[in-house]
Structure formats: structure tokens, C-alpha cells
């Protein structure tokens, strides 16, 4: 079983998680930029973060035969902090880079005017740089947030097939289903979606334009919920082809629209590694002391 996690925050995870993900079948992932739990106080903090998403994280992932790509953006929560909004001016120089396959996460947290502004500006940046967008939908007042999100997307003129609306659930999936946007579901141990509930959604809406992600981060989350959902799909009677389309082909199609998704040499059949990977990043290996 090959798995592409279209939304996972590896910066917040350990190297052992990469090993477990490899074991579970994860061979590629996209790490979108997000809020780190501790508020940033300056634009410089974003620079270091973006550099890490384009440097150290792809290196760590490569040690386990996992291909790492990223999505970059000013997240909705920090769009409200005037100390951070300057990052919008810096984004263009990052959005040109290899390894960046989308603009994200953008969208709404509390639906403030500052969030409106950052959302619109970044949809424009995505158009300029030929990138699809990963849209976060708010935890609070979600249904209203999804409606407003779809309005903004429509007004921006971005083609819906270049938009992934994420963190959907039973009450919001219907709002997106008819729009042509991709529908993302984050499967969490406790909150958001569970593997079983996810199979109910798939039974009702089919596997077209649907992505399942772990959205694992520093919270009570788990990077293996993609695999658990795949198992739940098989148990619920889905065939291996349907599982492969949700877990691999759909994310490849969505992020492939960037023209920068590079899966050459990613080994998805056996268990061995095919490509040689560098053992150190900027002189730093992942070992701590003797092996």
C-alpha cells in the first residue's frame, strides 16, 4: 500500500515518526506552513521556518525514502498579528523554489478583516506563481467559515480544481462537493474525523476529488491515521484501487498541478530503498552520539 500524506506538519514530529510512516507505506508527503503553537514575533521567524521546510525536513524525510514537498504561506491565525504580516512581501522569493507545490495553509481562523486581506493576497500570489492552494477551514463556526471561504475563492477567479478545501467533516462536505474544489479530511485520534466516519463520507460522496490527511502536528494527532483510514476503507468493502486513488493518485493529481511535484526515484513497491540519499545535512546527521 502506497500512501501520500497531503497535509502533515513534520517539523513537529520526531525522526522515529518518519520511520513509522515509512513502515506504514508513506512514500511522499506535503508539509504546509502553519502556526507553531508558540506565536512568532517577527518575520525573521518565518524565514527560518520556511528554510527548514525546504532544507532540513526534506533531508530527514529522505533518510526514510519519503519524498518531502511543502506549501508555504502566512497562516490565518498569525495574519492577525501585525508583527507577522510582513512575511507576505517575502513569500514571492520562496514561492519560486523547487519543492514548493502549493500556497498554504491559507484561509480563516476567526474570520477577521485582517484574515480576509491575507487570504485574498495569497490567492493572488498562487495565481502569479502557478501554484494550487491548500485552504484551512476554521475550527470555530466551521460551516459559516466554509461558506465564506468558497465565496472568496469564487471571487478570486482561481480555478476550483486548483483549490483543496481541508478539515472538512459531515456538516461541511456537502457545501464543497458541488464546487469543483478538492475536498480534504484530516483524520485525528479524537477530534476532526475518525477513520470509520471517513469511510461513511467516502461511501456517500465517492473517491473523486477527495484527499485524506493526518494533519499531524504538535497536538494530539498521529501521522499514521492515513494508514488506519486505508485499512478502514478495505474493511468497509472498498477495493485496493479505490484505496490507492484516495491515498496516492488523488494527492499526486492535485499537487501535480504545480508542475513541481518530483516523485522520480520514489520506490513504492517493495521495502528496500532505491535512491542514494545524503547522510548529513549541513554537516548534521540525525544520529545522537554513537550508533
Amino acid at each position: 500500500m502506497r500512501i501520500f500524506d497531503p497535509h502533515v506538519h513534520m517539523t513537529s514530529r520526531t525522526t522515529h515518526d518518519y520511520a513509522r510512516m515509512r513502515e506504514a507505506g508513506v512514500r511522499a508527503l506535503v508539509e504546509p506552513a502553519f502556526w507553531l503553537g508558540q506565536p512568532r514575533t517577527s518575520v525573521g521567524s518565518f524565514v527560518d521556518y520556511f528554510d527548514s521546510l525546504l532544507g532540513f525536513e526534506p533531508f530527514r524525510a529522505a533518510q526514510f525514502g519519503i519524498r518531502h514537498h511543502c506549501a508555504l504561506a502566512l497562516n490565518p491565525k498569525e495574519a492577525n498579528d501585525p508583527r507577522c504580516t510582513g512575511v507576505l512581501d517575502l513569500l514571492p522569493r520562496y514561492l519560486r523554489r523547487d519543492g514548493v507545490v502549493a500556497v498554504g495553509e491559507i484561509g480563516y481562523d476567526s474570520m477577521t478583516p485582517a484574515e480576509d486581506e491575507a487570504f485574498a493576497a495569497q490567492l493572488e500570489l498562487a495565481a502569479t506563481h502557478g501554484l494550487p492552494v491548500l485552504v484551512h477551514t476554521p475550527h470555530r463556526d466551521k460551516a459559516a467559515g466554509v461558506r465564506r471561504t468558497l465565496d472568496v475563492i469564487r471571487e478570486s477567479g482561481i480555478p476550483p480544481e486548483r483549490v483543496l478545501v481541508d478539515h472538512l467533516n459531515e456538516t461541511t462536505v456537502e457545501l464543497v462537493a458541488g464546487t469543483g474544489c478538492w475536498m480534504g479530511f484530516s483524520v485525528y485520534p479524537e477530534t476532526k474525523m475518525s477513520p470509520r466516519r471517513m469511510t461513511h463520507v467516502l461511501q456517500r460522496f465517492g473517491t473523486e476529488r477527495i484527499l485524506v490527511d493526518s494533519a499531524a502536528d504538535w497536538g494530539d494527532s498521529d501521522p499514521l491515521t492515513t494508514r488506519e483510514t486505508a485499512e478502514a476503507m478495505l474493511e468497509a468493502g472498498f477495493g485496493h484501487d479505490a484505496v490507492d486513488s484516495v491515498m496516492w493518485r488523488n494527492p499526486v493529481r492535485f499537487y501535480g498541478q504545480s508542475g513541481r511535484l518530483d516523485l522520480d526515484g520514489v520506490e513504492t513497491a517493495g521495502t528496500g530503498r532505491e535512491t542514494e540519499v545524503p547522510a548529513v545535512f549541513a554537516g548534521n546527521s540525525l544520529r545522537r552520539g554513537e550508533r
Partner: peptide
């Protein structure tokens, strides 16, 4: 309205 939508969302998740 927001609280009722929130209650609905929780219930729809069982």
C-alpha cells in the same frame, strides 16, 4: 446561531 451549528457539528460526528 454559532453555538447551535457547533452542537450540530458535534452531533453529526456522533
Amino acid at each position: 446561531r454559532m453555538l447551535a451549528d457547533f452542537a450540530h457539528e458535534r452531533v453529526a460526528a456522533g
